[in-house]
Design a protein around this nucleic acid. Structure first.
Length: 203
DNA sequence: GGTAAGATCAGC
DNA sequence: CTGATCTTACCT
């Protein structure tokens, strides 16, 4: 089962998700940008930017469950963001889906995002990605490898990507846990959090 | 029971 | 650069 390929640390899972196909409610898109979150708290790189950092809670419980599930959360009270749960054995981990290239159902995505949205920006940014694929908070916890499910994931051959710091995090802001495919117009622009410490002062 | 911060986005 | 909008988590 493909979910086993995601029962690994968040960095490995993130790289495996680059180039994978995500199908949601009439739209198919290729994942081109992701970010790793979580991992062991007692390891060398505890992740203070992860929702799992302060332990199991009402919002993040899916992150502590089996790999291959969808973890959604509401951002700034407005947007929905989607993660693929990874890791295993009680260690919480997830990969945030930051951008994708819409390959099928462009008209559907266009309708959801607004007809004036340029194709490359239909699923650019985690909030926009969920909007384009019709992912809502009701999808939290669903199995992405369930053939009957509303949102499905199909892994492909691993692709070599580029890495750099994660977008918008105020903790561990310098850590290169963001991965993307080079030369892809759908990849979102890097923005450092205004609340992050000066460059080099974050672990 | 109050409050501040936030893995964002679009519009000035 | 700013406002929108709301849930969670942490404080008193």
């Amino acid at each position: 089962m493909s979910a086993d390929l995601l029962s690994v640390d968040p960095l490995t899972a993130a790289r495996r998700l680059l180039g994978a196909a995500l199908t949601g409610r009439g739209v198919r898109a290729m994942i081109v940008e992701v970010e790793a979150y979580g991992g062991p708290l007692d390891g060398p790189w505890p992740d203070a930017a992860s929702h799992s950092f302060r332990g199991l809670g009402g919002r993040n419980w899916v992150m502590f469950g089996p790999a291959g599930r969808l973890y959604t959360y509401r951002s700034h009270g407005i947007h929905v963001c989607a993660n693929v749960v990874c890791a295993t054995g009680g260690v919480a981990g997830a990969v945030l889906l930051r951008a994708a290239a819409v390959e099928a159902g462009i008209d559907v995505a266009q309708t959801r995002r607004g007809d004036s949205t340029r194709p490359a920006t239909l699923a650019r940014g985690p909030g926009n990605l969920c909007s384009a694929l019709g992912i809502t908070m009701d999808d939290n916890g669903i199995d992405l490898f369930d053939a009957m499910g509303p949102v499905r994931l199909t892994l492909s051959e691993e692709r070599v990507g580029v890495d750099g710091p994660r977008v918008g995090v105020s903790k561990a802001a310098d850590r290169p846990w963001r991965f993307w495919l080079a030369d892809r117009p759908e990849v979102s622009l890097y923005r450092r959090s205004p609340r992050a410490p000066a460059l080099g002062e974050s672990d």
